[in-house]
Amino acid sequence: MVTVLVSVPAELPAPLPAELHYDMTDPYAVRLSIGAPTARPVDWMFARSLLTEGLQRPTGTGDVLVIPLHRCRPGSVRIVLRSAAGHALVDIAAAAIDAFLRRTVSLVPPGTESRHIDMDRALAELTGGQD
């Protein structure tokens, strides 16, 4: 668990608890859960490689961007989350992301993700469980 600073338009930035999750059965993805301890968290799924690259340089397109904040907030990374409902800026300590990514790499090294995918399950999900 880590505290992130969440900014949304027309509101003051708010510190909120957050957690990064990794599941070896979905080895290309990470999940960011943000929310107050008593509230249902908001989850965002995106590529582990996006988070890794975003520690070094701005990266991403579409719904998720990851930007290191070397100049304005050293030691932090900003994750920009966008949807049809709006957008949020999530600032998180780069050290927390780095530690999380090191744990994921110890479980599934980059380049070996395809060895951890259950193709039968993936095909069943894509076809709605039909043969």
Results as ranks from 00 to 15, higher is better:
75 G>H: 10
3 T>P: 09
53 E>A: 06
53 E>Q: 00
130 Q>G: 13
128 G>C: 07
98 D>Y: 07
84 A>R: 14
109 P>T: 05
120 D>H: 06
28 Y>Q: 03
102 R>A: 07
78 R>M: 14
108 V>E: 04
84 A>L: 12
74 P>L: 01
95 A>Q: 13
117 I>T: 01
64 V>S: 08
56 Q>M: 07
78 R>H: 12
5 L>P: 01
118 D>A: 05
127 T>E: 13
98 D>P: 05
16 L>V: 00
16 L>G: 13
16 L>W: 00
95 A>V: 15
61 T>Q: 00
90 V>S: 06
119 M>L: 09
53 E>K: 06
104 T>K: 01
84 A>S: 12
69 L>N: 07
122 A>K: 04
109 P>S: 08
84 A>W: 10
64 V>T: 11
47 A>Y: 02
30 V>K: 06
112 T>S: 10
16 L>H: 10
99 A>L: 06
33 S>C: 09
97 I>W: 05
129 G>K: 03
7 S>Y: 02
101 L>S: 05
91 D>F: 05
34 I>H: 03
41 P>K: 11
42 V>E: 02
37 P>M: 15
122 A>C: 04
34 I>E: 01
27 P>Q: 11
100 F>P: 00
110 P>E: 04
85 A>Y: 10
82 R>D: 14
99 A>F: 09
35 G>P: 09
105 V>E: 08
94 A>W: 13
83 S>G: 15
127 T>W: 13
56 Q>F: 08
17 P>K: 03
29 A>R: 04
80 V>Y: 13
29 A>D: 07
2 V>H: 09
34 I>S: 04
119 M>A: 04
42 V>Q: 00
82 R>K: 11
100 F>I: 06
79 I>N: 09
10 A>C: 14
96 A>F: 04
20 L>E: 02
59 T>M: 11
30 V>R: 02
30 V>H: 01
61 T>M: 00
63 D>L: 05
77 V>P: 03
9 P>Y: 15
14 A>F: 00
116 H>I: 01
78 R>D: 11
120 D>Y: 00
16 L>E: 08
85 A>S: 15
117 I>Q: 03
9 P>H: 14
71 R>V: 15
105 V>Y: 08
96 A>N: 02
53 E>P: 07
24 M>L: 15
62 G>F: 06
11 E>M: 10
52 T>K: 10
69 L>G: 04
56 Q>L: 05
102 R>W: 01
45 M>Q: 14
75 G>E: 05
31 R>W: 09
79 I>Q: 03
18 A>C: 11
13 P>Q: 04
